[in-house]
């Protein structure tokens, strides 16, 4: 099985992720001795359409992301024209979950893909909403 890549967001410019959770997740990643990508702030990268986001979603390797709410992460990547590959991404929420829950999932080779409303469903839903209007 292809080992997932790991991405950690430090949410540097806001106090919305508890500092201890960030510190513990980062320490857990370092202890694991795995290779990983760490970014200062995904929001900032998304706003600038940072080319690194496209690099991070490219290729066949699955991706595990430790950041915030999955819906926010998905649309931040989307806004940067770096769509997350469906069925290939697991997003772990440092705003809601404890580091003890996040770290084992983050460093595990097993992937539990994030379930998003599919683009296909979305299109048909949008069409029906427009029809209602």
């Amino acid at each position: 099985m292809t080992q997932p890549r790991i991405l950690y967001c430090h949410c540097a410019y806001a106090q919305v992720v508890h500092p201890q959770v960030k510190a513990d997740v980062l320490a857990g990643l370092v202890e694991s001795e795995k290779a990983f990508e760490a970014v200062g702030d995904l929001c900032e990268m998304s706003a600038r359409k940072d080319p690194a986001l496209q690099r991070l979603v490219s290729g066949d390797q699955p991706l595990k992301i430790a950041a915030c709410f999955p819906r926010a992460v998905k649309w931040l990547f989307d806004a940067a024209e770096a769509k997350l590959p469906e069925g290939q991404v697991e997003i772990l929420n440092m705003r809601e979950d404890a580091a003890e829950e996040i770290v084992p999932k983050l460093i595990s080779d097993e992937l539990n893909p994030q379930v998003f409303e599919s683009d296909e469903d979305s299109n048909s839903e949008t069409e029906s909403k427009e029809a209602e209007v």
Binding site: H10, Y13, L26, L29, E37, A38, G40, M45, D50
Partner: peptide, 20 residues
Amino acid sequence: KVDVLAKLLKGGYQVTCTGE
């Protein structure tokens, strides 16, 4: 490694950790 990373990330930088 944690201390260096935390400092760079707080500064807004993106860091690739290669591992061994």
